[in-house]
Amino acid sequence: MNRFNSGLPMSSAPVVRPRAHALMDLFGRQDGVVIGVVHLLPLPGSPEHDGGPVSAIYERAVRDAEAYAEGGVDGLIVENHGDIPFLKPDRIGPETAACMAVATERVVRAAGLPTGINVLANAAEVALAVAVAGGAGFVRVNQWANAYVANEGIIEGPAAVALRYRKALAATSIRIFADSHVKHGAHAITADRSVAELTRDLEWSGADVVIATGQRTGDAANKAEIAEIRGATSLPVLTGSGATIANIGNILRHASGAIVASSLKRDGVWWNEVEVDRVRALMAEAAKYR
C-alpha cells in the first residue's frame, strides 16, 4: 500500500469501492513518480499558430519527449498549452483533436513511456478520444467534479458524461488524473466546502489520481493543502505544478509524485524546449527519495 495514501482517517468511511493503484499499473511504482509535460506549440486554429507546417509541431514534441525520456522521467503528458487563450470544451474544434492524436502517437512511439493527455480547457471527452487514437494510458482533467470560475468562464465538472463516453469507447483502462482546487481560477461557487470535501468528490466521481496544484503555471502546491488532500482520499496524490530541482525532494516526502515542465525548459520558461541536463539533474535529486 502507498506509504502516503494508506486510507481515509479512521472517522471517515470510504466513499467508493477500492480500485487498483493507478500509479503502479501505469508506471510500476507507487511513489516517487515524475511525469514531464510536452507542451505542444500552438496548434492550427489557435491565435498564436504561425501558419507553418504541422510537422514542425510534431518534431518539437518528439524532441521534448526524447529529452524527458533520456533524462529519466517515468512518464509524459501531452498538452495543448500553446493554444492560449483556451476555449471551453464545447468550442474546441476537430483540428485540435486530430493534431493532438498525431502528436501523441509520435511521442509514445519515440519515448516509449506511459503517456497522458490534457486538452485545455477541461476537454475530458476530447482528451479521451485523443488518448484512444494516440495510444495514451491516462488523461488529466483539471475540473473533474463540481465547478469553478476559470479564465474561460464557468467550468463544470464533466465526470458523469466523460465516464460514459469512456465506456462507449471501450477504453475503461484509461485512467483519470483530476485536479483538486484547480489553479487559474476562483472557487467561490464551492467556497462553503473544504478542499477535503472537494477531494472526496473526485474519488466519488471516478478519478484514479488526485493532483494538488499551486495558483498558476509554475507555482508550487502548498504543503498544507497537499496534506489536506492526501488525508481526504485513498487515491494517490501528485503535485501538478512548481516542481524544481530545489524542491523535488520536499515534494516527494509529501506526495506520491510530481508533474513537472517549466523548470526543465531552457531558462525555466514553459514555451522553450526541454533541456536534458535539467531533467537529469532533477531526476538525480528525486532518486534520493524514490
Rank of each mutant, 00 (worst) to 15 (best):
G7M: 10
S12Y: 03
P14S: 15
V15E: 06
V16Y: 10
H21C: 09
H21Y: 09
G28A: 15
R29E: 10
R29N: 01
V33L: 02
V33I: 00
V37P: 00
V37I: 08
P42W: 01
P44V: 09
E48I: 11
E48H: 10
D50Q: 02
D50G: 07
P53F: 07
S55W: 06
I57L: 14
I57A: 03
V62A: 01
V62L: 05
V62K: 03
R63W: 03
R63A: 07
E66V: 07
Y68T: 00
A69K: 10
G75P: 03
L76K: 01
L76Q: 00
V78S: 04
V78W: 04
G82D: 11
G82Y: 06
P85H: 11
P85T: 12
K88I: 09
I92V: 03
C99A: 15
M100V: 05
A103K: 09
A103E: 14
E105N: 05
R106K: 15
R106A: 06
R109Q: 13
R109I: 01
R109V: 13
A110W: 01
A110P: 06
G112I: 01
P114Q: 02
N118G: 01
V119T: 15
V119A: 13
A121Q: 04
N122F: 05
A123N: 11
L128P: 10
A129R: 04
A131D: 05
V132M: 13
G134D: 02
A136M: 08
G137L: 13
G137S: 15
V139N: 13
R140S: 06
R140L: 08
Q143C: 13
Y148G: 09
V149K: 09
A150Q: 12
G153S: 07
I154E: 10
E156T: 15
P158A: 04
P158E: 08
V161M: 08
R164T: 14
A170Q: 14
A170N: 14
T172N: 15
R175T: 11
R175S: 13
F177G: 05
F177C: 01
D179I: 06
D179A: 02
S180A: 15
K183V: 00
K183Y: 00
H184S: 07
H184L: 10
I189C: 04
A191W: 02
S194C: 06
V195Q: 08
A196V: 05
A196G: 08
E197S: 12
E197N: 07
T199W: 02
L202I: 00
W204I: 02
G206V: 06
D208G: 07
R216W: 03
R216Y: 08
D219V: 06
D219M: 02
D219W: 00
A220T: 13
A221V: 11
E225K: 08
I226R: 14
A227Y: 11
A227S: 15
E228S: 12
I229R: 09
I229N: 06
I229A: 05
A232H: 04
T233R: 07
P236M: 14
G240F: 03
S241P: 15
G249V: 09
N250I: 12
L252H: 09
S256H: 07
A258N: 00
I259Q: 04
S263P: 00
L264V: 03
L264T: 00
L264S: 02
K265C: 12
K265F: 07
R266I: 12
D267C: 03
D267R: 11
W270E: 12
W270A: 15
W271Y: 08
V276G: 01
D277M: 14
D277W: 12
K288G: 09
Y289K: 06
